[in-house]
């Protein structure tokens, strides 16, 4: 919440780092150690360095005049808040009806060569890699194209003239 409240962007960025690290702890609790590591490295590391770099580069010494526009947007935001809080309350109230969250046993993942299924620990790098490179191979390649296009776009944008 401090990301929104803080006046200066740099404080927002620091609170966002705190949020990301807390979220990686949630990932660890949910048996996703690889994603927790990626969260810390990519988000708290790379992306936030990018943000802080740009904030410093633009040198926003003083906060923008009249920073928060409290008009119709704030009303919409508060309405959304109320809606979501009601929904969350309904969800927690109903959780007796939901199936109890079970502790996940090691999941059997059929390896790429189609051998006998080997037991892989849930959330490990191996399990993620198996799923990523068998079921989601096309999406993986598409992601690489997206990264390439983004890289070219950034170079074109950042260069003043070609």
């Amino acid at each position: 919440m401090m990301v929104v409240i803080a006046r200066h962007p740099i404080y927002s960025a620091l609170f966002l780092v705190l949020t990301f690290i807390g979220q990686s702890i949630f990932y660890l609790q949910l048996q996703a150690p690889f994603l927790a590591a990626v969260q810390v490295i990519v988000y708290a590391g790379a992306i936030m360095v990018l943000f802080v770099f740009v904030i410093m580069l633009l040198g926003e010494d003083k906060p923008l005049r009249g920073e928060r526009n409290l008009g119709v947007p704030a009303v919409i935001g508060i309405a959304f808040c109320v809606f979501l809080i009601a929904e969350i309350g309904w969800m927690i109230g109903n959780q007796g009806n939901l199936p109890a969250s079970h502790t996940v046993a090691p999941v059997t993942v059929v390896s790429m060569a189609g051998q006998t299924g080997e037991t892989v620990e849930f959330g490990s790098v191996k399990a993620i890699g198996n799923t990523l490179f068998t079921d989601y191979l096309f999406a993986f390649e598409a992601t690489s194209i997206v990264l390439l296009v983004a890289m070219i776009g950034v170079v074109v944008l950042a260069k003043r003239r070609l």
Binding site: V3, E67, P73, I78, F80
Partner: peptide, 11 residues
């Protein structure tokens, strides 16, 4: 709420 309320593009 942050997207709706704030004006700074970075935030």
């Amino acid at each position: 709420v942050g997207v709706l309320v704030r004006r700074n593009a970075i935030i």
